[in-house]
Write a protein that binds this DNA or RNA. Structure first.
Lengths: 231, 231
DNA sequence: ATCAATAATTCTGTATACAGAAGACAATGA
DNA sequence: TCATTGTCTTCTGTATACAGAATTATTGAT
């Protein structure tokens, strides 16, 4: 899964945002896209050269990523791309499920029609990508939908912890090169999800989200090193 | 609430842990204990002098804290201690509640007797501190109990996001100089909590945790600037 | 040829140097 | 008295320098 290019849009911002941010995003992308595979050491000299910055701001970005949990700091040995085992992935997915279920329930109460319509639009986009079997585009919009539903709950802390886990899962979730049937079932679940949201049917949405994310584990488990064949 | 000294035990470690960690903890304490009040700018020169380190590792620690959400980075203006408004605090408490409820339910299934016994011991300690009206000691053990219950769920990601929010709430939660009755009711709730945990009664534990954390908001709301008198 | 010990090199951790932005301040004019 | 502008100071953002730990390469002995 090298060279994915999951970076969002072009980087040609005019505004002078502190270099820190730019480095941070580049580094994060390098990890998520797999240019820096799990377990790889982050060589400050080399990466700094590659990005065209000195080690000082680079190290600051690395510390930020460490707190995000994408990278692990090892004393006197720098930073290493964090490796997630089977249990860790499952645990993260379980927390994501809890968060999304709660968010979904809240969204049914709090969301305005415009917000729900935005999700519906994303969903339609996703269907188009599915029709073309464009995995990358599908995947991106899929993420946006889940993030969007959480956002409808209007709770920043909730969005924050959810985003944190999503980021960690991005790498591992994408590699789920699930077969056609699994992919189709995922799409169906999304279909139901949106319907429940539009009906503001909280219990139903909660149920579907739970099912969807429990299946997410089944969809990726075979790609995780060390995952048991059966639980 | 200045000069609280919520630092855990002595800092006289012999092992040579990377300076980064040491600075990080000192800084975090300065924020949590209120030496650096909300909104205060972190002057790198001054703090570096105070801690006896140069700006380079200090800045790295600040970036780490920024990702933790204790500090906000403002372009060309450095870092500022993050201020939490009423809604933000309430939102965070709501997420903490969800997390603890889920964790509690899981704990009822997964915890071993030894783990539950440890919580009971902490609880007894807390009662002792309550008897002596030792707010600081009480508060610390209180935190340890909540953290401990989450740990019983054996889900690192869950513990991780919970800890993240707890850290942000530490500052604001302690200032709740609640009156004797409120304090007493909190103790009673804890009493019930432990009982439900020992009985491994998940629904009951969930209910109590929900009540306890919903009341937590009522206990702190009057100390939050900008909190509405009624919802 | 294999392994141990040592020398050479690379890399991290921290300090310092320097340029430019932001903020403070004082002087000037209305 | 108050606003304004230009200067001066302070502080951030980045690069570079240097010491020591970690890693790799080399050499010598078995």
């Amino acid at each position: 899964m090298d060279h994915l290019d999951m970076s969002d849009q072009g980087e040609q911002r005019i505004e002078r945002l502190p270099l820190h941010e730019a480095i941070l995003n580049r580094l994060r992308d390098m990890i998520i896209e797999g240019h820096l595979p799990p377990g790889a050491r982050l060589n400050e000299g080399q990466i700094g050269l590659q990005l065209g910055v000195s080690r000082t701001p680079l190290r600051e970005a690395i510390k930020y990523l460490a707190s995000e949990g994408l990278v692990e700091l090892i004393p006197s040995r720098g930073a290493v791309v964090k490796t997630f085992g089977a249990k860790e992935v499952r645990d993260m997915l379980e927390v994501v499920r809890m968060l999304e279920q709660q968010a979904g329930a809240l969204a049914c109460q709090l969301a305005d029609d415009a917000g729900i319509a935005r999700i519906r639009n994303l969903h339609d986009d996703m269907l188009a990508h599915y029709a073309r079997r464009d995995r990358l585009a599908y995947y991106k919009v899929n993420q946006a939908i889940h993030t969007g539903i959480v956002a409808l709950a209007r709770n920043e802390a909730l969005s924050d912890v959810h985003a944190r886990l999503q980021t960690r899962l991005k790498r591992v979730r994408f590699i789920g090169h699930e077969g056609a049937e699994k992919w189709a079932s995922a799409v169906t679940e999304h279909e139901e999800m949106i319907a429940a949201l539009e009906a503001r049917d909280a219990p139903r949405l909660t149920e579907i989200l739970g099912r969807h994310l429990r299946l997410a584990w089944d969809r990726v488990r075979h790609d995780i090193p060390g995952a048991p064949e059966v639980d």
